[in-house]
Amino acid sequence: MKLTKHGFTLTELMAVVIIIGILAGIGFGSYQKAIERSRFSEGLAAGAAVQEAVNRYYYENTDLSDGSRKYPKMAYLDIGLANAKDCASKNDYCVRTKYFEVIVNNTGRVYAYHMKGNTRQLYYLLWLPSFDSSRAGEACVPFGSNTTEGVDFCKSMGYTVQSGSLYYKP
């Protein structure tokens, strides 16, 4: 009688493990990029909603059109953001979503800072109001010490036209 061996050799098993490891490494990088893109969408939606509300506030309160324009507190804006909460600073001009802190500054500009815990990360989004003397619209701005990564991310999201450190959507 002839004996037949069943099973795989150690070399074959190691080759399969190495291939699976390589595929998992590639997949994890793509997964991380997909997660950051979805977080970016949250910031984009929240910031755009606040900017629209700020524009409505100024159009409804035309008596503020002189040089002493006041910027509105979040309570004055007619919006509701899902899962919104107060910012850590308890600032009346700020609202926090899961991954972003959205702030209205004293010129009516809206900033959506990408947050990790209580630390600003990688990039922020900026909306310039229609009455602003500079270019109106939205921009992606690299943030922090590793601005190269922020620039790459802004470019990967389709922001290409540069003006200083601002990346506009064409």
Rank of each mutant, 00 (worst) to 15 (best):
I26G: 05
G27C: 07
G27P: 15
F28Y: 10
F28S: 12
G29V: 12
G29W: 04
G29D: 14
G29Q: 11
S30K: 11
S30F: 04
Y31W: 05
Y31M: 11
Q32S: 11
K33D: 15
K33Q: 15
K33A: 12
A34T: 14
I35E: 09
E36K: 05
F40S: 01
S41H: 11
S41K: 08
E42V: 08
G43P: 02
G43S: 04
L44P: 06
L44A: 07
A46F: 01
A46C: 06
G47A: 07
G47V: 06
A48G: 07
A49L: 07
Q51C: 04
Q51K: 02
A53T: 04
V54E: 04
V54Y: 05
N55P: 02
N55E: 15
Y57V: 04
Y57L: 08
Y58S: 10
E60D: 15
E60N: 15
N61K: 02
N61W: 03
T62P: 15
T62S: 14
T62D: 15
T62Q: 13
T62R: 07
D63Y: 05
D63S: 11
L64G: 02
L64Q: 10
L64N: 10
L64I: 10
L64C: 05
S65N: 11
D66P: 03
D66C: 08
G67N: 11
S68K: 15
S68W: 06
S68R: 14
R69C: 02
K70N: 09
K70T: 10
Y71H: 13
Y71M: 12
P72K: 07
K73N: 02
K73P: 03
K73T: 07
M74C: 04
A75H: 13
A75P: 07
A75R: 14
Y76K: 14
Y76D: 11
L77N: 04
L77W: 00
D78S: 11
D78Y: 09
D78E: 12
I79Q: 01
I79N: 01
G80C: 12
G80K: 09
G80Q: 11
G80P: 11
G80W: 00
L81S: 08
L81Q: 00
N83K: 15
A84F: 01
A84D: 09
A84V: 12
K85F: 06
K85Y: 05
D86V: 13
C87S: 13
A88F: 14
A88N: 07
S89V: 12
S89M: 11
S89C: 10
K90W: 00
K90V: 09
N91F: 02
D92Y: 15
D92E: 10
Y93C: 06
R96E: 02
R96T: 02
K98C: 01
K98T: 08
Y99T: 10
Y99I: 02
Y99D: 04
Y99L: 03
F100T: 01
F100P: 00
E101N: 10
I103A: 08
I103G: 05
I103F: 06
V104W: 00
N105C: 06
N106F: 03
N106E: 06
T107S: 10
T107V: 13
G108H: 01
G108R: 00
R109K: 12
R109M: 11
R109L: 09
V110M: 01
V110L: 02
Y111K: 13
A112F: 01
A112I: 00
A112V: 01
Y113R: 04
H114W: 12
H114M: 09
K116I: 06
K116W: 03
